[in-house]
Design a protein around this nucleic acid. Structure first.
Lengths: 118, 118
DNA sequence: CCTTTACTAAAGCTCTTGCCTAACTATCGA
DNA sequence: TCGATAGTTAGGCAAGAGCTTTAGTAAAGG
């Protein structure tokens, strides 16, 4: 890569891993310490820490350490940002299909006086 | 990786690259041949082809070759699937915040007769 | 037929990702 | 203070991602 990942890159990249999605699924139910996020995952604690830092870098999770326990919580604004990008594409696409539909309807109304076929 | 990429892995992975998102943004406006997708991108045609195959593997794009031209179109169902996953997390999180709010309200109503602190 | 156009296939190279183990720090509880 | 708990840091390794160049194939057009 040439440039440092802009937000959407990091965001989707973070969501692309099943372990990280599992962590988010857990966090969607409420905050949790690192070791609880790690428990169901088939990997070592340091690996979980790395996933956690990816999630934090993407803005998807925030965490705070109190005593020796780091408590993690989901940060839903980042999720919304990803959702917005996806939704914008869908809207554009549907809008285009509408225009296509209108066009086809217009053609229909005109009858087949024009020699163009498919 | 433990298992072969399930749909969501491929989906978010595909969305994590700016070149691929640019291709989708173009395709959201309507179908296009490969060379048109490639034109604005700062890379060789074979690279664009590789990105295209990632998008197809993720189910985000479908393409068909007619003559020597391959025409690509967006496949919005895959986008919706990604959106659904994100939305489900947001819903869960918001639901949790509701429950928390109820709980806090209940505590408030009770007054501070209970000695439990942190 | 010959050339251009549009794409495809193959091989290789570099950087990143995801995982590990081992060793370390910092709290908590007895 | 000692040991257990919770997390962190460092280093290393294998696989994958993303890009390149080179060399094709196949349709369109003169």
């Amino acid at each position: 890569m040439l440039n440092q990942s802009p937000p959407l890159d990091r965001l989707f990249q973070a969501l692309a891993d099943p372990a990280r999605r599992a962590m988010l699924e857990r966090l969607a139910l409420g905050p949790a310490p690192v070791s609880e996020l790690a428990r169901p995952l088939p990997m070592s604690l340091p690996s979980v820490m790395q996933h956690l830092s990816v999630l934090e870098a993407a803005g998807l999770v925030r965490s705070e350490k109190v005593g020796r326990v780091r408590t993690c919580a989901i940060a839903p604004e980042a999720l919304s940002q990803a959702e917005r990008w996806i939704n914008a594409r869908r809207i554009e696409w549907e809008h285009r299909l509408d225009r296509l539909g209108d066009y086809l309807k217009t053609m229909e109304g005109k009858g087949e006086s024009d020699g163009a076929k498919d």
